[in-house]
Design a binder for these strands. Sequence first.
DNA 1: ACCGGCTCATTGTCAGACAATATTTGAGTG
DNA 2: CACTCAAATATTGTCTGACAATGAGCCGGT
Lengths: 248, 248
Amino acid sequence: MGSDKSTAGTAVGSAAGAPLTGARIGRVAAPIREQVLDVIRQGILDFQLRPGQRLIERELIEQLGVSRPTIREVLSRLVAEGLVTIQPQHGATVAVLSPVEAEDIYEMRVPLEVLVMQRFVKRATDEEIAQLRGALGRIEEITEAGSETQSRLRAKDDFYQIVFEGARSPVLAQTLQTMQGRIRLLRATSLATAGRPEASLEEIRQLVGAIERRDLDAVAAAATAHVRNAAASALSQLAENEAETAQR
Amino acid sequence: MGSDKSTAGTAVGSAAGAPLTGARIGRVAAPIREQVLDVIRQGILDFQLRPGQRLIERELIEQLGVSRPTIREVLSRLVAEGLVTIQPQHGATVAVLSPVEAEDIYEMRVPLEVLVMQRFVKRATDEEIAQLRGALGRIEEITEAGSETQSRLRAKDDFYQIVFEGARSPVLAQTLQTMQGRIRLLRATSLATAGRPEASLEEIRQLVGAIERRDLDAVAAAATAHVRNAAASALSQLAENEAETAQR
DNA sequence: ACCGGCTCATTGTCAGACAATATTTGAGTG
DNA sequence: CACTCAAATATTGTCTGACAATGAGCCGGT
């Protein structure tokens, strides 16, 4: 199964005499820990690893075929991202987002998302704006087809990816990306998928329209509305879940 | 010097027969890597480690008396905090903040700081507000005494500590704390200390006043002004420095 | 049926090792 | 004398193996 070990190790080695060609494309260096990081993060973000689930080092080692130091480094990184919690003598678990934290994150997201969207307006090329329109189109398709949550999430990720690129602010992008990751945790917790795809879509349409018109105020309004609505939807659903759980 | 090794190791072990007393207070567990993390972070924040300086694993190991995995874990964490940069096959250096990044961070800080201050107004106890006034007093003293940059920074840290506590939003607090850390890097880069202590002090006075009156709008205005001015000052100084360096 | 002790699972930390790559130094040449 | 190429060195990336210490669950005794 997971015998990825060989990936980096052997491969290129000492082939023959060809002295110049052997380099560049070989690209032996695909830092293992980056790969591991991506795998686990994706596992969390795709809900394969559920919030609250324990992440036992030995198991991860076996499944991924890497060594313990690597795993530990990766887990540390994920802690920093807020996707994993470590209890001192007890180990790592996939983070569980409390409603209060979720609310905070949404509240922080509002102004930051306004900022990034306005940046996009100011800095993106026409081509990038066109790409954004394209990404919107894909979201529309998926929503109309009533497709899986997974693919809609992915389409939205693409959308944001374009925004982040065009906004030319790595710091802002990274912060927002982390926040969105944590919020996705929430979605896993509340099983949600907060089924308001149509409303959400319309908000995004508004947003893209405002961006194309380069109307900063409208952009701010649309971004604010979008995040606020998403927050309201997610939190109410969460509250519901909470109530149910409590009743039991 | 750094023979902290013994801290955890020997201590409690297998003393004699006393079966019950050995526990609790002993507190053998002071996670080494947390200590290491604090030491290095503090080193960076106190300018002992200058931006751009290389952080060679072997040296850190020798100086701190811990093992390599520990060091690497800590460095990873610091990367996540934005205080350290790692270039793939080349190692870690203390992060250097570019003017562009700095501007971004300040811009993000504005709305977040408004948020945290408003939260403080809404959630802090009267006692906490009084503590804030006290912290302001200490900043005043230090400023009037024309004391060292270091102690003024520390006093301001205390001030913010109270704000973060009272705002009851760990997520927000952590984000802002990280940002402030990165900004402090900037200060080290531009040697700065941005000598505008009086103006800054007056702004903080305004802020505290608004908080005591529980005037949310005034709080927002004061917080915005404070961050904006700090940004302007820091960035202009940075630009100056840049120009000088370029001339040479 | 409850409490205490014991075993086991898991983490925290270390030491040492090896390969792969970047940087620097040095030597040879035009 | 400047420049290019090759060897030597320094440093990171990763693995293996080991041990102590702590927390959790189980089992037997009262």
